[in-house]
Design a protein around this nucleic acid. Structure first.
Lengths: 135, 135
DNA sequence: TTGCGTGCAAAGGTTTTGCATGGCA
DNA sequence: TGCCATGCAAAACCTTTGCACGCAA
């Protein structure tokens, strides 16, 4: 994609406004429909895919039978995304995004002691989240 | 699922025979169709899901828009799950088991700081293994 | 003007579900 | 016998694609 279209712009704006969280294609479509802004679903999918290959947006395929998640990637976060991890609740399916230095230590440990380069994008830690734990 | 049906048995047998590799729901269906064994696709999906929640079979989602993969999990692999972690090499696909106290600390940290109960059975850490790293 | 981007609708592939029937315990 | 499991078909779900039209550069 080479042109700066209106659709592309408002999509990027929305992604930036949701920075720090994940957004699915459906979220995007719902948001624009609720705002009365018309945008085609194929445009959303195609632009998201473009933004991913441009490196502007990150795509997570956490689990099959859940939609892909997209997240705007900040310049500075681009440098070091090794401290972002994902938790997935096995009960409610919620995806939790955490930024934690202690978890970053795992990468270092695995690297130095087990000669394994962890891929934090791909890795999802499964378990039970706080609210499900209480029930 | 409480009953030992014929379909459940032959499905488990097939999964065991494929131990060490992944199998998709389609693979299962194709296999049985080729063998002349009739089994409904909903049965396959439902039994696979049951086996996963029983911990007998592992499910992973390599990528969205590819089907989910299932793999039979050996007894000894989940004798003591509390301090066993799994690493999966994204290059060669090798599954590595490690027993490591430092990794156990993750659970404690997630529990105390993030109120999240990690499930080490289900969790697979993705990355690049030593030998693939050298290449 | 050129050709990329858009929107619609339809197709694609995977997984889930409703309902009547079949089979285990 | 009482349930659970099965099978079929259809639906649901997310994503991709074909094609004509619109719009940025």
């Amino acid at each position: 994609m080479k042109y700066n279209t209106k659709q592309r712009e408002i999509l990027i704006d929305y992604l930036i406004s949701m920075k720090g969280g994940h957004v699915t294609a459906k979220d995007v479509l719902d948001h624009f429909r609720a705002s009365g802004i018309r945008i085609g679903q194929s445009t959303v999918y195609r632009q998201l895919e473009s933004l991913v290959s441009e490196g502007v947006v990150k795509k997570y395929s956490i689990d099959i039978s859940s939609p892909a998640c997209f997240e705007y990637e900040d310049e500075e976060e681009h440098d070091d995304h090794s401290d972002t991890f994902h938790l997935r609740c096995e009960k409610c399916g919620r995806l939790i995004h955490i930024d934690c230095n202690e978890l970053k230590d795992i990468s270092d440990h695995l690297s130095s002691e087990h000669s394994f380069s962890l891929d934090p994008i791909r890795t999802v830690l499964y378990g039970i989240c706080e609210s499900c734990r209480r029930n």
